[in-house]
Design a protein around this nucleic acid. Structure first.
Lengths: 409, 409
DNA sequence: CGAGTTAGTTTATCGCTTGAACTATATAAT
DNA sequence: ATTATATAGTTCAAGCGATAAACTAACTCG
């Protein structure tokens, strides 16, 4: 129930195809058209038929199914003025939504968006989760989630499914957090169904950086289908989006740019490796190199101190960030060559420090991947706050759009 | 006609699905079962029905279609001894094959395999293609291909399609060699239909390292679905296989391990970058570091000289190869982290030098990607000669197996 | 030789798309 | 107002492909 990994619209070779598959595929096709239409565009059955290539008869039948599930809604208003019988508009039902959740080092969060991605409710609760057992954290999150769900229901939005983002390696299939060093979690299997029971779509587990990358895909500039999202947090995470799909690799945790080797002669990393990007460009590494004491300060305070130091042109801070930019360039260059990726989106502290990071990053990319990653393809994340939460929710919506039959019966 | 990129068995969302798609999907399903059966296993319709989940009636109808295209054959012989009516065996028609072709720096080659991958004819012709215009090279290859085709026909094998491997960046869609530095080709669009006209499946263009990786997938140890193939030639190329699929990235040329940065302070690379793996582990780089003069010697001669030097424990040669191994380790470690890949297959000169390369490579991997790539997952290529050729041919066969309807009518 | 067993084909049925005919509802022309 | 025209959406017969069950075919066993 909880394991709703993004499934292909049509069955993978291995199981026989039947006419039900055709139906499912066409349900997804129609659903996709409606989902990608700009809101207020008054899409009609006839238009869908024309743009998809399906016949009007098929579209009518498919739309009927979708209306019955409740994810679609007819709009009575018909914009007159054109000749001929006016069509009935179709749109995603604004009374249905999904919940995004996040567990992070300093906080837990939950929010509900409707199916078009608009935020209905959102709640962040500070909580020091470092080294905490998973049970109390999940209990706190469950309480928050129930609150947020009733708040959404109060606004007329019913929650169909959920996504949970966690800062660590996850196995979505078994709902297990394999390793979240900053939380101190190792091989923790989460009982997601108990977190928020009775959701028709269940709850899916995501890696935080991957979820943030997905948010960037959904909410960033249109037409960008391939990029590397680099998430600067305590560690350095990454999310790879290739042809508008999250690329997760054979075991589901690709995109770990934080552990690309940027200096073979570098220092030891918490992962056991040597010279990883994280040892130069992670938050702790930058604070240390900039001479900002971390003791007693929260990460947010340290970050403000760093920005202040940079604004005052303090050489130590400038040098630390410059070095991070150069190393980030090396890591991105290597990744770009191996993966044939030409665009980079900076998130987390890399977005905050972009002004000071960019020169050395651009220079480094020009040196190590000339003609591959151009400065204009280095951008900062469009989503500032709650990226992981929004990305997790958005991904659940997307998987629903790609397999709407899951709501039937 | 020529652009037969491996297509999914079922239509990508975007075009309406109809019952024809179901048929195509099930044709591929049945075809797949027959193709993956060990030769001589006497697969029957009933067995296929049982293992695929299709009904006997459907299988019969599908098999009939496949027999009509000529890719399948019934075996009259029925192994008696079991009770009940004996089934008729089905197998890939050994009278059908595909042609693999290769253009490389020092030679051109063409060969025909049958649909089960067995080599029917193979011909390598030495030819210095360095800096040569594409037209004469293609003319020579066309002549060779025609010869090989008639030779195959003489052995009763009809060629259905072909694959051409080239050492450079290619765009399979437009049959264009974007850049092949070692040939001196830049943006050369190939007229593949003229190379060998009248093939029902056309001819597909491949990158050499990618094709070799595919050969490794098809002919290497069974059960290995994810690996990085590193091809050591004049340059260092790579092929990424993920979940038994070639991963080519958004623009079709992922896997370029040769240009991962292994030493930010390293020397300039022919690609314009700095400190790329190729500047340390490419053939020329190793020869130079080992003190083996390239002047006047062919690459083969230089390689023999190097192996001889290594066998004699000459320190210069040992150091050069050790350094290459260390750098290869850095590049593989970075790649492994970004792509979540845990196995490496060494091809080209890396396979030849494996004995001397392995210690430093293993040590390097232990240092830079501890717990990710284990020494026992570093193996040398199972295919020694003509890997690219076999891989290109095999990939064409595979795309046929995945979409057998392309031969209908 | 007949009973039992398994392979493969035939036939009726069902589900889904298609295309054409048809109904519904608007604007534009008379 | 009435009629013509245009467009939206539904209905209905036809076709295709999968399914299940009945049937025929070909072998082994006793």
């Amino acid at each position: 129930m909880a394991n709703t990994a993004p499934a292909p619209a049509l069955p993978d070779a291995g199981s026989p195809g039947n006419m039900g598959d055709v139906r499912r595929s066409n349900l997804a096709l129609v659903m996709g058209r409606i989902a990608q239409a700009p809101s207020g565009s008054h899409l009609t059955r006839a238009q869908i038929a024309a743009s998809t290539g399906l016949t009007k008869a098929s579209v009518s039948s498919i739309v009927l199914d979708l209306l019955e599930t409740g994810i679609l809604r007819e709009i009575g208003l018909n914009p007159q003025g054109e000749r001929g019988r006016p069509g009935v508009g179709l749109e995603l039902n604004p009374a249905r939504g999904v919940m995004g959740m996040e567990i992070n080092v300093d906080y837990i969060a939950a929010g509900v968006t409707d199916l078009s991605g608009a935020v209905v409710v959102q709640e962040i609760r500070e909580r020091d989760n470092r080294g905490s057992e998973s049970a109390p954290v999940l209990a706190a999150l469950a309480a928050l989630a129930v609150e947020v769900r009733t708040a959404a229901l109060g606004k007329g939005v019913e929650v169909l499914g959920g996504g949970l983002a966690v800062p660590g390696l996850v196995d979505a299939g078994s709902a297990t957090v394999l390793a979240a060093p900053n939380l101190g979690w190792l091989d923790v299997e989460l009982d997601l169904d108990r977190l928020l029971p009775g959701l028709p779509l269940g709850i899916t587990l995501f890696n935080e950086a991957n979820a943030a990358a997905l948010a960037e895909l959904a909410r960033g500039p249109a037409g960008r289908h391939d990029f590397l999202y680099v998430s600067g947090e305590v560690g350095v995470g990454g999310g790879l989006v290739i042809r508008s799909e999250l690329f997760t690799g054979p075991e589901g945790h690709a995109g770990e740019v934080g552990h690309v080797v940027v200096d073979p002669a570098g220092s030891r990393c918490s992962c056991g490796g040597t010279g990883c990007l994280e040892t130069v460009a992670g938050q702790d590494a930058i604070f240390a190199a900039a001479g900002i004491a971390g003791k007693g300060k929260s990460r947010l305070e340290s970050m403000s101190a760093l920005v202040a130091a940079l604004a005052e042109d303090q050489p130590g801070a400038l040098r630390a960030v410059e070095r991070a930019g150069t190393s980030l360039g090396v890591a991105v260059a290597s990744t770009a060559r191996v993966l044939n990726i030409g665009a980079v989106v900076l998130g987390g502290h890399f977005a905050v420090l972009e002004r000071w990071l960019r020169p050395s990053l651009a220079e480094s990319l020009a040196r190590y991947a000339p003609g591959k990653v151009f400065p204009e393809h280095i951008t900062i994340a469009a989503v500032e706050e709650g990226g992981a939460l929004l990305g997790a929710a958005g991904s659940v919506v997307r998987s629903l759009v790609e397999a709407p039959h899951r709501l039937q019966h």
